[in-house]
Design a protein around this nucleic acid. Structure first.
Lengths: 227, 227
DNA sequence: TCCGAAGTGTTGTTATAACAACATACTTGT
DNA sequence: ACAAGTATGTTGTTATAACAACACTTCGGA
């Protein structure tokens, strides 16, 4: 029954529902259920398994030195978490994982994922490639975030981010997947300061915006080519 | 002759020099030489190969919207670069790679790395695991940098970074692998402001420092446990 | 239709970091 | 031992973002 769900995940992509389900044995799969708010992994834990959300959702969060909790990420059905830590033995978890709502989680032993057991597991090697792909993609996302937050000013960060979105959309007009608060969090700035700067940029004729729809004006001749 | 070098790299770890060299055929290896300053990869390129530095060194750098060049990383003999992009088809390079000095670079087709060719390649599957490990490690490094630069104040960033270093060293005294400028770059702040804040923190009795040797005072009772 | 909640924009004040400029170490080669 | 260069710390000024407080808009129920 979980096979159908698994076959649709990025991790098991390429396997049929039957094949996916059949692999679970090799992978030391264990399923657990959690109540809303329950802690699934705790900062400092050493992970030997990666987690895959089967139902509900989990939050990846961290408490800073002063006890403020920040949500870093959210994983829903079919998405995996803690896989990075599980892949690097001896590296303690730097975050907490808690259930955002009632959730079922499947834990897979990374050791078993990485070492092809026998020829009965047809898609095992595809599984490893999928995991590498996920890791590389996460890598790029992290790099991009660092890239977009490296500018000192809010305007600089916005231009970096918006230029990227424009390039990715293939034109000067595009919409972004964040609301203002989320964009502020992503760029690591204050929401109200962000709103303020967006207004100024519109007044300065750099952009036009309507809700989440942006247009980059003045394709800053000569600048846009490289960045 | 390159076998001995290869066998010592993180990517080929586990293979003997002979085995490593023998694998090069399967991997579509091509060696290229570059003069100092020569551009090896250009922002926007689509990578099908990962690069491994055989000799010399290369810089991973980026030009921002205003043309300022920032060095993001440096790769020396045995280290690889652009592997993340090569692992995610269709994702254009966001950085430039240039030779920091005269350099020889080995390019390996990621497609060939990921797909085990035949049983003659004994360590091919180990190679994939090595690549995944490298990717996961890079991931953690990026996450840590984001983590340490998420605080709004310089002091907050320093406390985050220094607490981590203390935890990792297993005690309140430790030395760091950065000079002031490098630390400032890492934390994304101004060098002189960093120096200033370090002095203040010492005056405030939070830390003691002597060159790159730090001691965290007042193991901030109650706070340290989680972070 | 009205209410409340969430999202967004605006403004003024305050805290903070960037910046510039310089003084003081500390290296390193000759 | 000296000079030149690099690294680091110090200070005052200025630019900028955080913060707080509020007005305005959507939007989705009740």
């Amino acid at each position: 029954m979980t096979g159908a769900l698994l076959a649709n995940t990025a991790l098991f992509r390429g396997a049929s529902p039957q094949e996916a389900e059949a692999m679970l044995n090799c992978l030391g799969a264990v399923e657990r259920s959690y109540c809303k708010g329950e802690r699934i992994c705790r900062s400092g834990d050493y992970m030997t398994d990666l987690g895959m959300v089967l139902s509900g959702s989990v939050l990846i969060q961290t408490d800073d030195l002063w006890g403020n909790t920040t949500v870093l990420d959210k994983a829903g059905p079919g998405q995996i978490f803690a896989e990075t830590y599980a892949c690097v033995p001896g590296e303690p978890l730097m975050v907490d994982v808690v259930a955002a709502e009632a959730a079922r989680v499947l834990f897979l032993k990374v050791e078993r994922v990485l070492h092809v057991c026998s020829h009965t597991c047809a898609h095992h090697s595809k599984l490893i490639r999928n995991l590498l792909l996920l890791s590389a993609q996460k890598n790029l996302n992290l790099s991009r975030k660092i890239f977009h937050t490296s500018a000192k000013t809010i305007r600089g960060r916005l231009l970096s981010y918006l230029s990227y979105q424009a390039r990715r959309s293939g034109g000067p007009s595009f919409s972004i997947p964040f609301n203002r608060q989320q964009l502020a969090d992503y760029l690591n700035v204050e929401r109200s300061a962000l709103s303020n700067e967006l207004s100024k940029m519109q007044r300065d004729g750099l952009i036009r915006l309507e809700k989440n729809q942006f247009t980059l004006i003045q394709d800053v001749s000569g600048l846009s080519s490289r960045v």
